[in-house]
Simulated scan of single mutants.
Amino acid sequence: MHSERNDRTKESSFRLRRVANVGRNQENQSGGVTFVLLGFSEYPELQVPLFLVFLTIYTVTVLGNLGMIMIIKINPKLYPLMYFFLSHLSFVDFCYFTVVTPKLLENLIVEDRTISFTGCIMQFFIACILVVTEAFVLAAMAYDRFVAVCNPLLYTVVMSQKHSSLLVSASYSWGISCSLIYTSFLLTLSFCGNNFINNFGCEHTAIVAASCSDPYINQKIILVSATFNEISSLRIILTSYVFIFITVMKMPSTEGHHKAFSTCASHLTITIFHGSILFLYCVPNSKSSWLMVKEASVFYTVVIPTLNPLIYSLRNKDVKDTVNELINTKLFCDKM
């Protein structure tokens, strides 16, 4: 057993040195900083199985989120503002998954795991915009459900198309602002030697760890900002659901209880999303194990974009009716 562990360690070290040599050659050719995404290279026997798993998930996620956007656009029954937020959530998930996953899939089947400095920073910049935006779109959705359940007579006034558009626009704007701040501080870092990023994507913690500069300012910036974002969005979400729960419990109808709780229960995937973000950026000393960091990154990078179209939307009766209509129409046209 001990011998097998040593052999595995030696093989992993050899593979990392070989990847490092590839990265060094690439860096010498380009004359710029080059990163090496280690990903799951310490598990060489799992590269092909992981590739097949992530490829399947990627296909399902892309089809699910794009299909959700298309269904909402073509069905006039799905006009309520809840679906307006869902369409933006699907768009954000699709973009985020597309920014991160192709490079992950590539690194699972090729030996050259390098990524240029510009490519890495751009991946982080775009991914950061989308993660922050999703946090506040989820908060807007919770507020939307709060108004719908607790103040149904005022719903069309409070959650007008104009107000909903402002909420979504503010989410995107804040995401861009946060990403610009984080990225500008990352650009002040210096990198020397072989810059290993111990993750499958250009995640903030891994980039800072690869630097030979003092990480203190970057670590504090992300800690303070991420904590503020989490407290702000979670406060809206938790407050909304507390009032929803109180209102629902006052309803005399059992059917009303079931319908309201069914609508809101689907939103509970936020616990996975926010739990991952809290662990990575808001809990001191949570990054003592890079394996745990990768696992947390998988949750909000892969799991959430896959679950959202399934849990938020495809279990909805109006959405399922639309899908059935499209399938029946296609079958009818084929028979003709």
Rank of each mutant, 00 (worst) to 15 (best):
residue 213 S to Q: 06
residue 64 G to M: 03
residue 198 N to G: 05
residue 221 I to W: 10
residue 17 R to G: 04
residue 323 V to D: 03
residue 106 E to L: 11
residue 250 K to L: 08
residue 60 V to C: 13
residue 15 R to K: 15
residue 239 T to L: 13
residue 197 I to E: 02
residue 329 T to G: 09
residue 202 C to S: 08
residue 96 Y to P: 00
residue 51 F to Q: 01
residue 317 K to V: 08
residue 93 D to H: 14
residue 224 V to S: 08
residue 14 F to G: 14
residue 243 F to H: 08
residue 288 S to G: 14
residue 282 C to L: 00
residue 275 G to A: 14
residue 81 L to A: 04
residue 169 S to C: 09
residue 181 I to K: 06
residue 283 V to C: 11
residue 10 K to W: 08
residue 311 I to C: 13
residue 112 D to M: 01
residue 35 F to D: 03
residue 71 I to M: 15
residue 281 Y to G: 02
residue 197 I to W: 05
residue 80 P to K: 07
residue 32 G to S: 13
residue 190 S to W: 05
residue 152 P to R: 11
residue 305 P to D: 03
residue 312 Y to P: 10
residue 253 S to H: 01
residue 44 P to D: 01
residue 33 V to L: 07
residue 60 V to Y: 06
residue 95 C to Q: 13
residue 218 N to K: 03
residue 49 P to Y: 09
residue 319 V to S: 03
residue 118 T to V: 10
residue 24 R to K: 14
residue 121 I to C: 06
residue 329 T to V: 00
residue 313 S to H: 12
residue 261 F to M: 15
residue 260 A to N: 12
residue 161 Q to C: 13
residue 287 K to L: 08
residue 291 L to H: 08
residue 157 V to G: 00
residue 322 T to C: 14
residue 117 F to Y: 15
residue 33 V to E: 07
residue 23 G to P: 01
